[in-house]
Design a protein around this nucleic acid. Structure first.
Lengths: 130, 130
DNA sequence: ATTAATGCAAATTGTTTGCACGGTC
DNA sequence: GACCGTGCAAACAATTTGCATTAAT
């Protein structure tokens, strides 16, 4: 546990939900130890390996991360208007998913369920794009 | 509709399920007209726009495509052992997904549901990786 | 002639890596 | 003094783009 790694971990801890490696790097740059981008990537990978952080693929070319310690698995609603990310869990969906896998004799390891659309705010006169 | 575009479309039509832009490019290279990689990308994007082809994100850094004309939407089970891709549909899951979205006042546009694990073959003495 | 599509090669983007350097046991 | 982590800059890989050329109307 080096000072750099501690800095990255701290950065992760007060990150706002979902963030990219670069978000984190930029945010860390404002504080002292000035860790390098490479170390951010390397340390994030480390944290993912130790289940402290989860890497989530939100359908863009950039990987997102989120703090994961002790949290439940959840999936995401992703707003095409403002980029907001809403988390959800549904045991019923997971159960059905297990049934589907059984039918196909498929041994499930993990899954990713993303719904893209518009959040409440963006439906009401919000940003018109996407 | 140029000869190049026709060539790409033909390539798509006899593609084996899911393929990457580069798969397609390589495959086309064996036949005559020799379209360029750029044109393959450009044309695929065009076909996606006209709903003839669907772009699917399988969780790797490469985009996959599949012929989509007149097909139902479906989701995927992806084998971590051999890379096999099994398609599935479940109206029950989609219904529950709609309920979840309603609860969050989220207007759904499209979704992506991927399950990673091991296919039947790979469970039986198959490749040990992942 | 104007417009649109192509091919090439260079640019872009997010991420990874080789390697020399610095610190620690 | 062996080892590990770091920073830098170069390497990468998939995709996109600028631009000059070509083809079609």
């Amino acid at each position: 546990m080096t000072p750099e790694r501690r800095a990255v971990l701290n950065g992760v801890l007060d990150a706002p939900g979902h963030f990219t490696a670069d978000d984190l790097y930029i945010r860390l740059k404002r504080r002292d130890p000035m860790v390098s981008r490479a170390t951010v990537y390397r340390t994030l990978e480390l944290l993912v390996g130790s289940r402290l952080v989860e890497k989530v693929d939100l359908g863009v070319q950039q990987a997102y991360y989120e703090y994961f310690f002790g949290r439940e698995h959840h999936d995401h609603l992703i707003c095409l208007g403002c980029g907001a990310i809403i988390e959800f869990t549904s045991q019923a969906i997971e159960d059905l998913q297990n049934v589907v896998c059984q039918e196909h004799h498929f041994e499930i390891r993990y899954h990713s369920h993303k719904v893209f659309g518009r959040c409440r705010k963006c439906q009401q006169g919000g940003s018109p794009d996407a």
